[in-house]
Amino acid sequence: MIKSIKYSDLSPSETERLQHHIDTEFGHVPFVQAHVWAQPDWSIIKYEEDNTATFYNVVLREIALDGQNVKAAGINNVITPEAYRGKGYATTLLKATEGKLFDEWGCDCGVLLCADALVPFYSRLNWYKVDAILYYDQPAGKQLYDSNVMLLTPPGCSRLSPKEIDLNGLPW
């Protein structure tokens, strides 16, 4: 079963469970520890027998691509707990909910900040890497992101090729 839940509507126990998975997966990463992150607007969760089999969070925001504002769905924390890995659950979840980004939420693109090892995975799901300078906010001011940026455009639309992206807020 797949559920899309407003992050603010998650029960305290569900929020704690998702945060536990996030901390397990990314809590040891120095870059993650050193930054302030945006609170998600939505959590997309696939359940197996009432257990979280895979999930991701979404931040909806106006961002700037080469100075032009567009509505983006920022994807973060795509996580499959270890007991459920290797079953294609993340692929299934991302494919099954792709339309939500564009049809329901009216986004112009999806954006994710991606580790090198995951670029091939997302590429198989129609995400594509862009060579863009990406800025994001932190309490001390604008910061430059120096890793992979991937975009997803609606089916049938041309790929975007920005040279500069500003997240207009905290990273996700």
Rank of each mutant, 00 (worst) to 15 (best):
W37D: 06
G106H: 12
K100Q: 13
L93R: 01
W42R: 11
L101Y: 15
S43G: 03
L65N: 05
G88W: 06
D103G: 07
Q68I: 08
E62D: 15
Q68H: 11
L93T: 03
Y122F: 14
T52G: 03
G86Y: 02
V111A: 10
K87N: 12
L125M: 03
G74T: 08
G88I: 02
L94D: 00
A90S: 15
K46T: 09
K100H: 09
N51G: 00
K71Q: 14
V78A: 04
N77R: 08
P40F: 11
R61Y: 01
T97D: 07
Q68V: 12
L118F: 03
I63D: 06
Y122V: 05
V70N: 00
D41A: 05
L118M: 10
S43C: 14
L112S: 01
L65P: 06
Q68R: 14
H35K: 12
Y84P: 07
V78W: 03
F121T: 08
V119C: 01
K100S: 08
D103C: 11
C109Y: 04
F102V: 06
G88K: 07
D66F: 14
T91H: 05
A34Y: 04
L65K: 01
I44N: 02
E62A: 07
P81C: 09
P40T: 08
I44H: 07
Q33H: 09
Y84R: 06
I75V: 14
V111Y: 14
E104M: 04
E104Y: 05
A90R: 00
L60V: 14
T52H: 00
I44D: 02
G74A: 11
L113R: 13
T52W: 02
T80F: 05
K71W: 10
E82F: 12
W37I: 02
V70G: 07
H35I: 02
Y56D: 09
N69Q: 11
S123K: 09
K95P: 00
